[in-house]
């Protein structure tokens, strides 16, 4: 019975949303890139770079929002680097993406080591604080859970709405969806395939970096090695789970966050009987199961991973 009571605790939902926030940023970012036809496997590294850049900027005295902007900028630059190889030069998106991940991760760790040669305790910053919106607390369970979130979580929610709005309600979104399906259609209408894809990569990668920045600037308040821990890869899977739709991406990220928060609480309940590793595996196993169920019918953007070379059929 106790296992079900967890679902009624505001603290559980607060944790679920907190865990989901970086995933929301990441999955919306990946979704924008893939809608334009580019698989961005640099996501894991861009998370690390964003986490490091935002945190370091604040540590060195910048304002919190300036730190967020710097993280986004760093992400966008890595996105453009990815685009240089995959869009302009038409190289393999897989290989480039893995390369970007290795490069961005190493660069961030290296920068950290150079800046802090000998620390045992990761230096902390004054991070984003919960907004504590009083009005929300009137709603049972979910209200107090939302009230505990920081501004970055609300920014993530806003990004979902904004992405949906742009994709489905603006000429730009139309062009992004078209370029990921049949770039020739965009070319034939006089729009720039490369321009659209580079733009989508920059914007999507900026969002991925915000996912990383959330971790150092709102969750852990510090940067340390191994902190991203596969969150980027989870976003790639969630994108398929979401069928490339922002609203489903939000649901997917929240579900994953809920699973993860749930397993932590279940561990304390069932501690000692079942090894804790089993619980740690749970969200990943569930996401694989969900992926298998959904992805079999997934409608991939038809031009995903296909470089566009003018004049070729």
């Amino acid at each position: 019975m106790e296992a079900f009571e967890i679902l009624l605790q505001a603290n559980f939902w607060a944790a679920a949303i907190r865990i989901a926030t970086p995933l929301i940023f990441g999955v919306i970012g990946a979704l924008i890139c893939e809608r334009a036809g580019v698989l961005n496997l640099g996501i894991e590294g861009i998370f690390v770079a964003g986490a490091m850049a935002g945190w370091l900027a604040v540590y060195l005295g910048a304002g919190l929002w300036t730190g967020v902007a710097i993280a986004a900028l760093v992400g966008a630059l890595f996105g453009l680097l990815h685009g240089l190889f995959t869009v302009i030069l038409g190289l393999s998106q897989h290989v480039t993406g893995i390369g970007i991940t290795l490069f961005a991760t190493s660069a961030a760790y290296f920068g950290y080591r150079v800046a802090f040669p000998s620390v045992t305790e990761p230096p902390r910053i004054m991070a984003f604080q919960p907004l504590d919106l009083a009005a929300l607390k009137l709603i049972p369970v979910i209200g107090p859970a939302l009230a505990q979130q920081t501004a970055l979580t609300w920014l993530a929610f806003a990004c979902v709405a904004l992405a949906a709005l742009i994709l489905y309600r603006t000429p730009l979104g139309l062009a992004i969806r078209a370029v990921g399906d049949n770039p020739a259609s965009v070319d034939a209408q006089g729009l720039s395939v490369a321009g659209l894809r580079m733009g989508a990569l920059a914007a999507g990668s900026a969002l991925m970096a915000l996912g990383g920045a959330f971790l150092t600037m709102s969750a852990f308040n510090a940067f340390f090695f191994g902190m991203i821990n596969g969150r980027g890869w989870v976003c790639i899977a969630l994108t398929v789970f979401a069928s490339w739709r922002p609203e489903k991406a939000l649901i997917g990220a929240l579900l994953f966050g809920a699973f993860d928060a749930y397993q932590v609480r279940l561990q304390t309940l069932a501690g000692g009987i079942v090894p804790s590793q089993v619980f740690l595996m749970m969200p990943y196993i569930l996401s694989i199961v969900a992926l298998v169920l959904v992805a079999r019918r997934a409608d991939y953007p038809r031009a995903l991973m296909k470089p566009y070379i003018k004049g070729e059929r």
Partner: peptide, 8 residues
């Protein structure tokens, strides 16, 4: 070869 985006 048509230049239509099939998802639109």
């Amino acid at each position: 070869h048509f230049t239509l985006a099939e998802n639109l």
